[in-house]
Amino acid sequence: MANRPDDALILYFYGEHEAPEQIERALAADPELARRYELLKRELAALDALAPPEPRPGLEGRMWARIAPELSRPRRVLVWRWAAVAAVAVIAFGAFFAGRSLRTTPDETTVVQTLKGFTLEARERVLQAALADHLESSQRLLLEVANGGGSPEDERASAAHLLSANRLYRRAAERAGERRVAAVLGELEILFAELADDPASARTRFPHARAESEDLLFKVRIARNNLKGFS
């Protein structure tokens, strides 16, 4: 069903009109319609300027070389997920105990034992939510630093808070052999440590921290996007 005046012409242009002979007759009989059709053709032809060049030769081989290592890690994914769940749980338990003023955090072994009753699905849901939260919080801080609008005191406090969680994630990733994830988290850790150091020096290092955070922001977003694909 074509509602706007040129909708029928669009269908005709793409060879989708149910009665093309009707359009042809109308175009022959109506110069104004024919003018509009010529304009439509010209404007849509501009899209053809988007014709891409050919990719570099060997695209398929390059693509497979980049993808294959990621596919052959089903077991590693589980190990990584399990390790990360433990890290997440340590953080969560730590926060819980800290909230009760016990000031203690259970070690990972305790947490792993505690979580053994979780189903695999439940663990994965916990991991996905917690990693996403951590990366989102990291992204927020990096944005603040990159934009330069936040107070150094607030940034220091946020960085200190994220730093401890980040260390656990990074160590879990390293143990699981997730080098790329560990590398991003490692970079985050350095920046968080710098920002958490003290507000005064954070101010003096601000241009440096800002440049780093812009670069890291990109990596964190990619990591978050990849995380969306986990489910």
Binding site: L50, M63, G229
Partner: peptide, 23 residues
């Protein structure tokens, strides 16, 4: 490429796409 206009970025995006598809 039509979205990105950059050959290397298009390869990155295709890599991501295949990994998302695999998952």
């Amino acid at each position: 490429f039509r979205i990105l206009g950059d050959a290397a970025a298009a390869e990155d995006a295709v890599q991501d796409a295949f990994l998302r598809a695999w998952r």
